[in-house]
Structure formats: structure tokens, C-alpha cells
Design a protein around this nucleic acid. Sequence first.
DNA 1: CCGCATCCTCATGGATACTG
DNA 2: CAGTATCCATGAGGATGCGG
Lengths: 210, 210
Amino acid sequence: MGRNYRQYCGLARALEVVGDRWNLLIVRELLIAPARYRQLIEGLPGVATNLLTDRLRDLEAAGVVERRLAEDGATVVYALTPWGAALREPIEGLIRWSAPLMVRGPEGDHFHDEWLLIALPALFAGRISPESSAAIGLSVNGQLIQVQATPAGIEVSPHEGRELDAIVRAEPPIILGLAAGMLTLDNVHELVDIDGDEAAVRTVLSAQRS
Amino acid sequence: MGRNYRQYCGLARALEVVGDRWNLLIVRELLIAPARYRQLIEGLPGVATNLLTDRLRDLEAAGVVERRLAEDGATVVYALTPWGAALREPIEGLIRWSAPLMVRGPEGDHFHDEWLLIALPALFAGRISPESSAAIGLSVNGQLIQVQATPAGIEVSPHEGRELDAIVRAEPPIILGLAAGMLTLDNVHELVDIDGDEAAVRTVLSAQRS
DNA sequence: CCGCATCCTCATGGATACTG
DNA sequence: CAGTATCCATGAGGATGCGG
């Protein structure tokens, strides 16, 4: 797009910075973790290399992304500035809004399980955590994602050896539907494989929307 | 853009619906009020008529916008579906994120004061309302916008004759900066013209971020 | 290999003119 | 008024090249 809207409106000015095609998906990748050029290519299936370069330059010039030197001191790593990381809020809003688009399933689309590290916190946000704490693992394509509910809130991270109360195996649409509150465990029980303490799973999933 | 990302990711699927140029600005206009084609043209300076028609068709097919018959039964009025209206949340997030882009002022960009009806609630959101209530008017280009703070929250609407505790006259960048909490009344007092009870103005503006 | 830069093709966007 | 039609400029996407 490139062309400016020339409107003194916050939405228009925000879109002049992040509204170009691929831009918010680049930010999504960098919200998961700082990444190198090659990792971004792999995390953004279908992006043209010239476009990725252009967009990274644009975002850097706008103050959303910064280039850092990797630990080896030679190669470049792209990371979000604090202002860029603040895009998490509107991105999470769009993810919540998109829930009706996700229940129809992947339909052959690419899927990276790291994307759940962004989507699950977004979908759990606004849910009141229960008094009792619980930690469950979500198993997707063999990858394990840890969801920990405490009275303070729900945290989602890659599993790193912490002891889990239960492990849930299900397909991504089911997991996203449960997280969005569009499905309940009772509705889809036969599609969910629970290994461990089912009560802990319900502790996490039964939290109500506020 | 039109081209699909083909990623099973909520953000990607959301952007396939509302990521095209102009789409979110059309939604912004319809968040203010349902509108006819001509009103949309006027509210979206620079949009080409063929693009507006295309985008309205796209949004209608996606279930974001619906065409209604006007009261006269002949002409069409465009309005948001409930799902389309739910875009208010991510749009408000983008507006909050854009605050640093607004302080530099309009710089000749178009400005419609109705846009404040979207921006001000977004910028006031997350502020804790004071115990005492107050209603002030913001005067922009002679138009009066009413901001009412109660313990329950802050409401923004066009002024419709309600009694006001005070009226604030200031340029849009100052008003947006105050609403975003980037400026304080003390910092910019000489740029703000207060008619009425200044304490009421402070009651509204001094609310702290949570 | 990685990290781009260049080239080419075609779809999309933008401005204007025109029509039911 | 509410769009279509047309034409042109731009941007997206894919392939390839190339220095480190």
C-alpha cells in the first residue's frame, strides 16, 4: 500500500505503520521471540523475500522493530521495540475477534504450534481464574504447551519440565474453541484425550468470562 | 490484497477479512453510525468509489457489514453486524497504540470531529473513574462532545443539551494527548480554554491509568 | 548455506469519467 | 445518488543472482 490515508485519526495513522500486508504477521512472529531473517521466512509461509526485507525496513524506520547483533556478533536478529511489543494488545483483540473463523478448522492451512503461544493467552484473557491453581499441558503435534492457572491469571508458555497436573491431547480447532469458550469439555469430550487429573483440566477451562 | 495467507492462525484469518486497505476505516465510520454510500465517501477522504464498493461487498460477504433499507424503503444504508461491531475492541487497541503518532499534530491531514467519538472512549478506557461524577464538553471546531465521568466509567457522546459542568476548548492534538494521559492539564494549561468548573475538568482528566 | 537485491509478471489500488 | 467502467500506476509474488 504505502500510500498514506492523510487522516488525523489514530486508527488511520496506526494502519499507515502496521496496515501493510504481512506487517502484523511479522510482529506476531517477533512477539513469540526475536528471530533471524531465515526464521521469519519459515514462520511466514508464502512471503516473498523482497517483501520481507521491505517490511522489516519499514517497521524499523517506524520504530516498531529493531535490528540487534546476535550473540556471535556477526548475524542480525530482529526484535520488537517496546512500542512494537505494545501491539500485543490489538493483536490479541483481533485474535479474539477471529474465533468464529477458526472453528471451521485448518482446511489445509499452514499451522505452527508456536502460534498458540499468542492465541491462547488472547483467548483466555478476560476469563476469571479460579481460586485453585492448576497446570496442564496441551499436546499439539507432539509439542507440549503449558497452561498454568493461578488466582492471578493464566499463563501460557512452552513446557519446560515443570510438573503437570494433566495433559490434554486434541486437535488445534478443539483447543482454540475450548480456550475461546465456544466449546466446553463436555461437548467435545470424545475428541479430547486427557492424561492425568481431569479436574485440573476443568479448573483451567471452566473459568467463566467476566 | 485479496490473496489469502493460508495460515491457521487467528490473526491471519482476521486480516484476510479486515486487513485490506480501507476496510478498518470503513468499520470505523460504521461504528460511529450506520451510513449511506455518500456518507461513507465523505467520511473516507481519498477513497475511490470502485474500491469502496468492492470493500463493502467483501465485508458484506464476510458477515461484517449488512445492507439495510433506509426508512424511506428505497435507499440502502450500510451497518455493522454484531460481529462487525465487535471490531471495536481491536480498533480501540490500535488507537491506544497510535497515541505516540498523534502528538505530532494533524500536519494538514483531514480531521472529522466524529472520529473523536471513537478515539476518546478508546483513550479513556483503562482509566479508573473517580468517585465524584462530572460532565464536561469538549469543543472542537465549534462542535461539542460530551464526556461524562461516573464511578461506573467514562462515556463519550455528541452533546445533546445535557447540562455541563464545564466546557474545554482545545485543539485536537491537545485533547487526544490529555485523553491518552500523555499530557496533563498543568502542562498545557495555556493551550486549553476552560469555561465553567475547572475542578470538573480535572475530575475527568485526572483519573489515573490502572 | 544466509541475507538479502534484482528482475519480471500480473493482480490490485487509485483517479477520473460515465451511467441507470 | 449510487454505483460501473476504464485506464494507468503501484505493489505483491515468484524466480534467480550474488557477495560473504
